[in-house]
Design a protein around this nucleic acid. Structure first.
Lengths: 264, 264
DNA sequence: GATGCCAGCTTGTATGAACAAGTGACACCC
DNA sequence: GGGTGTCACTTGTTCATACAAGCTGGCATC
């Protein structure tokens, strides 16, 4: 690819392995080569290989148990929670044609929730933007965002059909989103939602509220995205091994069963 | 506690740090001691400390940037995606009184979706269980689960008010859930949903469909949980640093801005 | 007084080694 | 033949070290 030119070694290895899995070289259920094998093959130490496979494991692509070789669990690419931050990036990865239109940009005082989430004074001004996003022409999501005053000038200067506001901010103002926090629930479509998404009022929408920070922990935006039901599903994978802390909370942990399970 | 008696060193350290953050010793925005400090304080190597703080970072509790000290981002415990697998565990962590009631247990042929998800023959029998779960007496979630035939006997033997089916299976049959996959979207309440959750038909529900595997990759159950809107929200945190692979896909990465950001 | 630079601190990446713990398959014995 | 035990292999955990890359604050300079 050449994308990761100066990238770290372990990122290269992870990407190569990912490609092999997605490409079918290691089908679902197959066992990956051992860490020592991979280390020798790439001329790196075992620790570096472990960083690489750790990435894939956190994506839910492969699983591991102490003593047994790593196993391929899935062979799909999908909207993982790792890339929640950018609708545009996700849509392009899916190969869909994505378009957006900003319907309104208004400066107004922050609401109580906005000032609390963004950590600004209750009466300070925010830039409120309403946007509709489409996949292959179909309206799929309504986005209502409050931007803090210090990014507002940049957002105000963008054209109505900008694809990725966050990417534009990064280019034009050197402000990079580093952390994100997401709340996901379901709501009924309001009358504006219904009109914009072409659904009936009261029909279910998947809502993702989202706070974005810079690297220094300074809030950038607070946004309320509403997806038409059926158009989008979030997916996440996890494993018991990845969260041993929580698992150990019980009174006692049952030992690994010696029961032989033929893999069907 | 005494839970993590023989646990690994890095788990102890992570738990201690987590407790310090949750307890307010390191408030939001505070900087953690440096890795070397922590290593010295716990008499471990820096690598071990890094494993510990890595856990907290993946929970979204702390953030990090190369060169700067780690920073506390949040001071809350909440329904993280790491513990999606167990409603019971989550509810107890919240301090709510949780109760459940199994409404029906029927053996029937698997539907097309069930056989596909569970990887069984299209005509094979599954045990279909419908359950209502309450928080503090309020019905909050309807759970419809298809269990594969090899766990069905265990499930059939459980009482109607069992709190955690997966925990019971682990105790009674030494079958441990290791991996999970979750799909989250929004649906309208059907008539049964409406009756059980005491909402109007057609009102929005948050749906979490969920496939559980054993360590060997053998499917255990496929379940469709529907939460009443407003009762539950899923939350997830992420950071750019945690997914460098995806971020490097762009044409060029803007360097870290030297812009001084006072933390407000 | 404002600006720029630098030295020291901190995190990120990588190596190589060692031991613990769990798995899987083979050989063996009854 | 079936059960059992052994053993090589594999992953999990930890250590000590080294260098690269980025940040911070203070100092020197203008």
């Amino acid at each position: 690819m050449g994308a990761g030119v100066g990238s770290s070694r372990y990122l290269e290895i992870a990407e190569a392995l990912r490609k092999s899995i997605l490409g079918g070289e290691y089908p679902v259920g197959a066992r990956l080569p051992s860490e020592s094998d991979l280390a020798a093959r790439w001329s790196v130490s075992r620790g570096t290989v472990r960083q690489a496979v750790g990435l894939l494991a956190s994506d839910g692509l492969i699983g591991s148990r102490q003593g047994a070789r790593r196993v391929v669990l899935r062979q799909e690419r999908r909207h993982s929670f790792q890339q929640l931050n950018s609708f545009a990036q996700w849509a392009q990865a899916l190969g869909c044609e994505v378009s957006s239109r900003i319907l309104s940009r208004t400066s107004r005082p922050a609401t109580a929730e906005e000032s609390s989430r963004l950590g600004v004074a209750p009466d300070s001004e925010v830039l409120y933007v309403v946007r509709v996003r489409r996949l292959d022409g179909e309206p799929v999501m309504v986005e209502r965002t409050a931007y803090t005053d210090w990014v507002a000038p940049v957002v105000r200067a963008l054209p109505d059909d900008v694809v990725s506001i966050m990417d534009s901010i990064a280019e034009n103002a050197d402000i990079v989103a580093h952390y994100g926090e997401h709340l996901i629930d379901a709501v009924a479509a309001g009358s504006e939602d219904a009109r914009l998404l072409r659904v009936r009022r009261g029909s279910p929408l998947l809502r993702q509220r989202h706070l974005t920070y810079t690297a220094a922990g300074r809030p950038i935006e607070w946004t309320d995205d509403r997806y038409r039901a059926g158009s989008v599903a979030f997916s996440v994978s996890n494993s018991a091994a990845a969260t041993p802390l929580e698992r150990h909370a019980g009174p006692e942990v049952t030992p690994q069963p010696p029961r032989p399970e033929q893999p069907q």
